[in-house]
Structure formats: structure tokens, C-alpha cells
Simulated assay, not measured.
Amino acid sequence: MAGLSRRQLARVLESLEDFADPSVELEQYLTPPDLAAHLTHLANLQGDLDRRVIDLGTGTGMLAIAASLAGAERVVGIDVDPNALSLARHNASVVDSDGGRIDGLEWVRGDVTRHPFSITGATVVSNPPFGAQRGNRHADRAFLETARELAGVSYTIHNEGSQAFVESFTADGDGEVTHAFRATFPIERRFDFHTADRETLKAEVFRIEWNR
């Protein structure tokens, strides 16, 4: 499936399964296929998929699988939840059996904030928790801190209104936000506190170059 257009990539990603029993504490939501396709298509255009790609908090494997399909040859998805990793493996196998090129894709169980990686200069992709749950506030900051440790460049998805925080954090880490765009994040009703069958959140996506 080399040379997929952004639209074709999104169509393939639509086949990925969502969480059957998502964790509210981990804020487990399916990254929208069109957003994953947009992010990884941009990463490919920027030449960022030529590096090792690390998907922090991979969940369903959406971003890791998207990166692999978009051309990355070495991709690692890490998640603290073993059930999420099982789902990610399943999703990758389904795409692979349907003719997708899923090579060099690894899955690692681990805490993003206490990761096992010793590399630098990677491309990090992540859809971190937005910090909506009690005890999870500023969770996206922890993911950015890990991205700063590992990445030459990173792509992260944040709740709307995060730009000032992300730019300030990046500047403090001697980095630079080179791209920023808004995206919609549709969420189906899945937890008791959800009051609507479907809600659309507004999100912001950032590409950051970390100077070393």
C-alpha cells in the first residue's frame, strides 16, 4: 500500500476496531482515522517517517499503524494497558491480512513516563489523554516531557485551547512549533458521564522540532 493518498490511508484506518471496554481512567478513545491519516501524511511529507517512529500511549494502534502504512519502516507502539496492546496487535494483523504493508512494527508494554527507550532523535507521535478526568490533569504535559527526551520531532494532539501552553513548553525545551492545525474529534457515548450519544470535541495538533 505504498503511495497511499491521505484519503486512501484514512479509508484503510477505518477498519481498525475500537476499545470494547475502554478505561475511563486512561481516557481511552479511538483516534479518528482521518486525523491519524492527516498527521502521518504530513509526517511523511516532512521526511519525518525516515526516522524511527514511537507512538506514545498507542491504544488501538491507530497512529502506529498509520505511520507504518504511510511509509515508516521502524515503528514502536508503547502502552501501559496490556488489553490495549492486544487490540493494537489485532488491528495490525487485520490490516496486514488485507494487503497493508505492516513491516517493522513492534509493541511494548510500559509507562510512557518511565519508558524503556534509550534512543534520541526519533519521531514521536501521540494522542495523549486530554486530562479531563480527576487525577489525570496535565497528563498531556507528561507525554510532552517524554517526547522532548526522545524526539528530534514530535506530533501531538491536544484539547482546544492548548496552543499557548504547548508553545511555552516547547520554547522552554529549546524547541519550536513548526506546524499547528485544528481538528475535530468525534466521540461516541461510552461512559456513564456522557450525556449525548455522540459529541464532537475540538482539538489542536502540533508538530514540534526539538533542538539538540
Rank of each mutant, 00 (worst) to 15 (best):
53 V>A: 02
76 V>D: 04
129 P>Y: 08
31 T>N: 04
44 N>T: 07
54 I>D: 00
43 A>C: 11
49 L>H: 00
103 D>Y: 09
111 D>Y: 10
13 L>C: 08
105 L>D: 02
60 T>N: 03
174 D>V: 11
5 S>R: 09
4 L>V: 07
101 R>P: 14
32 P>D: 05
109 R>G: 12
201 L>R: 04
30 L>S: 09
95 V>K: 02
34 D>W: 07
32 P>W: 03
113 T>Q: 13
182 R>K: 15
66 A>G: 04
189 R>W: 04
58 T>N: 02
137 R>G: 14
167 E>R: 13
34 D>L: 08
6 R>D: 05
188 E>A: 15
192 D>W: 11
134 R>K: 15
83 N>R: 13
203 A>V: 09
7 R>V: 13
62 M>E: 00
61 G>H: 00
57 G>A: 06
38 H>Y: 10
80 V>C: 07
116 P>C: 08
81 D>Y: 03
106 E>C: 10
65 I>P: 01
33 P>I: 06
70 A>G: 05
95 V>L: 11
165 F>S: 08
111 D>M: 10
170 T>L: 09
114 R>A: 15
212 R>V: 14
123 T>V: 06
142 A>P: 01
145 E>H: 07
42 L>E: 12
155 Y>K: 00
124 V>T: 03
105 L>T: 05
108 V>K: 05
3 G>H: 09
150 L>A: 06
84 A>L: 07
69 L>H: 00
94 V>A: 15
82 P>D: 07
149 E>M: 11
141 R>F: 15
53 V>W: 00
41 H>D: 14
59 G>T: 06
194 H>P: 06
102 I>A: 04
51 R>S: 09
34 D>V: 10
153 V>Y: 02
30 L>V: 09
19 F>Y: 08
96 D>V: 09
190 R>W: 06
32 P>Y: 02
85 L>M: 07
150 L>Q: 03
126 S>A: 14
22 P>K: 05
